[in-house]
Nucleic acid binder design. Structure first.
Length: 483
RNA sequence: GCCGAGGUGGCGGAGUGGCCACGCGACAGCCUGCAGAGCUGUUUUAUAUGGGUUCAAAUCCCAUCCUCGGCUCCA
């Protein structure tokens, strides 16, 4: 039984989607005025794993992620660079896809943009005004927080005790209460704008998520996600805007990921302690970065450092070695058993037992609010067992090995790890040629070793290493891989 | 100030009453012509501090100290 932690109730709750067999989830995406950094990756990878696990559990997942392509930061950055906000957005959306494709993040069902939903937002705001939840002031429109009694229930913040509608001298003079927030911002000279019944301007930040979420997923949706820093005010305001109109819950499960920190401080643009995904992936394999990001539970903080990424690199190498070992044994067994199938041995039974344990432990972990560290631990335990069995003296049948591969493939798919090593034998012609040539050299080296001509043997190995090809001697023979 | 999260071995990171994961690093052994990988073992009483409850506490209760986050820029 899957349980998820709901920020609304601050408890783990059994997960039951509104429509059986179907999950509708929405993730607050980036404002596309700059490159994504590792903090964004933490959130996006976390929800990617959640989405993948839900799919693994056979849910049909509709997953929407927005791009905020109009707001103050978009405007000021576009002005700095002498481009339009549209040009700026196009550039960073493209970069976004490059970054996250690299990190193995599955593309969302749709990526709606704020600027493509202005009409719907205006309609939503009009209805809010009509119902008395919003008011116009100098061409801007604000949400009247005091009118929405549940305000603050997500972030557990008391509504300001000040008298509603009491003028606030420190404010711009437009808002009737400091807690009120903008639904529509009147145009300032030189800014991009859209026509609205109350004048030229642009939407506030929060309204886009309410409108696009409802448009693409309906109401209520099952899961709405984002970083912990979005709880207040962003998500609180989304609830207010949406529920003020619909009169029913907007979201059933609110999920928030913890921060990526640097020296225990939140990685953020304003602190300047950020590294872009491009910078990190220039230094580390994207799969290493991904493993690093899922090595702690998504709600826990995770501290960034080179040492921690190096650790993930070592750990990933261990996983890869085990997968490669399995791949070789599987291919050999399939070939060997082409004509006469082998009988399962005790070792087969042991491996089956291990698979069963892995399967149970893994699912129990992921069912418990997506506990990836425990899922990885169960995988590690299994891989140790598998290494022992495969390097042992007993041969395993092709059937057992293929089953092992199938299970590891499915579990790796959820975490987004080692998938590229799970395929069959190399298919590209060049690859096949290289494979043939290297095997030829391996044979020659084997001859040399047999003749105790270690000088030649070592020379072959060393020269291949210079070409980026590593030879490793196994009990069953020599294998090769790329450095 | 208000609200919230958390302090676990050399390091990362699980664990909400007993059996104390998993990984990284280090050391030793096995295997090996050598190397790598792999396997095994070790890394002495790891659970911020002080009390309390209990046959039994990292886990529950009380107090204290410390760290981090949110409070309308933020994944």
């Amino acid at each position: 039984m899957l349980e998820v932690y709901n920020t609304l109730t601050r408890k783990k709750e059994p997960f039951k989607p509104l429509h059986e067999g179907e999950v509708r989830m929405y993730l607050c995406g980036p404002t596309v005025y700059d490159s994504s950094h590792l903090g964004h990756a933490r959130s996006i990878v976390a929800f990617d794993v959640i989405r993948r696990y839900l799919e693994y559990k056979s849910f049909d997942v509709r997953f929407i992620q927005n791009f905020t392509d109009i707001d103050d930061k978009m405007i000021s950055r576009a002005n700095e660079q002498g481009v339009t906000t549209t040009e700026l957005a196009t550039k960073y959306i493209q970069e976004y896809f490059e970054d996250f494709d690299k990190l193995g993040v599955k593309r969302a069902t749709a990526f709606p943009k704020a600027t493509e939903h202005i009409e719907e937002m205006i309609a939503h705001i009009q209805k809010l005004i009509k119902k008395g939840y919003a008011y116009e002031a100098n061409g801007s429109v604000y949400f009247r927080v005091s009118k929405f009694k549940k305000y603050g229930s997500l972030s557990r913040q008391e509504q300001d005790a000040k008298e509603p509608d009491e003028p606030e001298p420190s404010e711009s003079g437009e808002k009737k209460h400091p807690d009120d927030f903008a639904l529509w911002k009147a145009m300032k000279p030189g800014e991009p704008f859209w026509e609205a019944p109350w004048g030229k301007g642009r939407p506030g930040w929060h309204i886009e998520c309410s409108v696009m979420s409802a448009k693409y997923l309906g109401e209520p949706i099952d899961i709405h996600g984002g970083g912990l820093d979005l709880v207040f005010p962003h998500h609180e305001n989304e609830i207010a805007q949406s529920e003020a109109l619909s009169g029913r819950p907007f979201v059933r499960y609110w999920m928030h990921n913890g921060f990526l920190t640097v020296n225990k401080e939140k990685m953020s643009k304003s602190l300047g302690n950020f590294f872009t995904i491009q910078e990190i992936t220039a230094k580390y394999d994207p799969e290493v970065v991904r493993l690093f990001l899922i090595s702690s539970q998504y709600r826990s903080p995770i501290d960034f450092s080179d040492a921690h990424l190096d650790e993930a690199k070592s750990r990933l190498a261990r996983i890869h070695n085990a997968i490669d070992l399995l791949q070789r044994h599987t291919q050999e067994a399939v070939l060997a058993e082409a004509d006469n199938p082998a009988k399962p041995s005790n070792a087969d039974a042991e491996l089956w037992e291990g698979l069963k344990t892995l399967h149970t432990e893994y699912e129990t972990a992921m069912d418990d609010d997506f506990n990836t560290p425990i899922a990885l631990a169960s995988l590690s335990k299994f891989l140790s067992l598998m290494n022992t069995i495969l390097t042992g003296t007993q041969t395993i049948t092709a059937g057992t090995l293929l089953k092992t591969r199938e299970v590891l493939d499915a579990l790796g798919e959820v975490l987004g790890l080692y998938r590229d090593r799970m395929g069959g034998p190399a298919q590209i012609t060049d690859e096949a040629t290289v494979d043939g040539l290297v095997k030829l050299l391996i044979d020659l080296r084997a001859q040399a070793r047999k003749n105790k001509d270690f000088k030649t043997a070592d020379q072959i190995r060393a020269q291949l290493k210079d070409l980026g090809i590593i030879l490793e001697d196994e009990k069953s023979g020599t294998v090769w891989k790329r450095a």
